[in-house]
């Protein structure tokens, strides 16, 4: 991990992974906003179990980058208390599998505080957690349960899928005046590197990012599945099938316009996500296209998702998840319909 030692006005391009981008964005905000506090289990001296906060405590001190006792509900609860009293806490939950004790605090307080006080109080905080499968992790370390959070009114859910988007979207999430659950696809934490300018420029929330233009079919996906999907799109391109690939990025609220415009153009839609199918975010995307874009569709919508089972332990985890061939087949079938 490298930090910019250049003068602030000179933004330099740094080649970085997705997790480097998370660290770099946290450092930028810690450096530029004294209200920002990073807290969580092992985020301080140890720099996080995935190293997302590596070097931050040494640079900003133990007050700004705090190791907490081990209680996730507590981490969320004190973050809400801090946020309501003028700080911008960025708590880390070590793995999504341990995020569930935070649910009470998020649904009962974070997402409601502004509303229930008619704007007297607000809750600017970003709860970060790594999520998703594919890294041969132990039990409870591989699930994708973003839909739980997308169902909470008042909570934004954001998932980056590249170093540049991790940097820009995390900055935006921290600067957003309302609570954000920021889920980091850990399988692609170090999958590739990208040149990212550490210039403090945020990317917009609440919009999709079109990763690849195409004309035959729209594929909506997010997180680590963008990689599988882009690979499938490459493969399909060899058969002259032109896929438009859209990264949802903000899982809630969803930017329907980009999706509807794309479906209007292509007439076909496949949705790809790691999470279990039933009541997944894909169902919401399909519903909105059915409600507002049905007459643009030339074929039924297909979903390529995890199955509605307990996520298998890692010997079989890849069989649970969408794969390049599952995605490519779903595209072909949709085109044949």
């Amino acid at each position: 991990m490298r930090f910019s030692t250049a003068t602030p006005m000179v933004a330099i391009m740094v080649e970085m992974t997705l997790i480097d981008a998370v660290t770099t964005a946290l450092a930028w905000e810690l450096d530029h906003d004294p209200r920002v506090v990073v807290l969580g289990e092992d985020v301080g001296v140890n720099g996080g179990v995935f190293r997302a906060t590596a070097g931050l405590q040494a640079r900003f001190g133990a007050d700004r980058v705090q190791d907490t006792p081990l209680a996730e509900g507590m981490i969320a609860g004190v973050a809400i208390g801090m946020a309501a009293q003028g700080m911008i806490p960025v708590p880390e939950i070590q793995f999504m599998g341990f995020i569930y004790p935070t649910v009470d605090q998020l649904i009962s307080h974070a997402g409601r505080l502004r509303n229930r006080t008619r704007g007297r109080m607000s809750c600017p905080m970003v709860l970060r957690a790594p999520f998703g499968g594919g890294i041969h992790a132990p039990e409870h370390h591989s699930e994708s349960t973003e839909a739980l959070f997308a169902h909470m009114p008042g909570i934004r859910v954001v998932i980056p899928s590249s170093p540049a988007r991790a940097y820009g979207l995390l900055l935006a999430a921290i600067r957003d005046p309302d609570p954000v659950v920021f889920l980091e696809p850990k399988r692609i934490y170090r999958l590739n590197k990208q040149n990212v300018e550490d210039n403090g420029k945020a990317l917009p929330l609440d919009v999709c990012y079109t990763l690849r233009q195409g004309s035959d079919i729209t594929i909506v996906t997010w997180g680590a599945m963008t990689f599988e999907t882009l690979k499938a799109a490459d493969q399909l391109a060899k058969s002259n099938i032109s896929c438009e690939v859209i990264d949802l990025a903000t899982i809630s609220p969803i930017d329907y316009e980009t999706i509807l415009e794309s479906v209007e153009k292509t007439g076909r839609l496949v949705i790809v996500h790691e999470a279990a199918r039933s009541c997944g975010v894909g169902a919401e995307v399909a519903a909105i296209v059915a409600e507002k874009g049905l007459y643009d569709l030339k074929a039924p919508i297909r979903r390529v998702t995890g199955y509605d089972v307990v996520m298998p332990l890692f010997r079989r985890e890849m069989d649970y998840m969408p794969s390049v061939s599952k995605i490519a087949d779903a595209v072909r079938e949709t085109l044949e319909d």
Binding site: G81, Q85, M87, D104, R116, T117
Partner: peptide, 28 residues
């Protein structure tokens, strides 16, 4: 939306969840 103590937390119905808000406020 209290006219008076603007920084006081509102009523808390989910039992004891407010203890953490007090701790968080104290951290601030």
């Amino acid at each position: 939306d209290f006219e008076g103590p603007k920084h006081d937390f509102p009523f808390c119905v989910p039992i004891a969840t407010q203890c953490l808000h007090a701790a968080g406020a104290a951290m601030a």
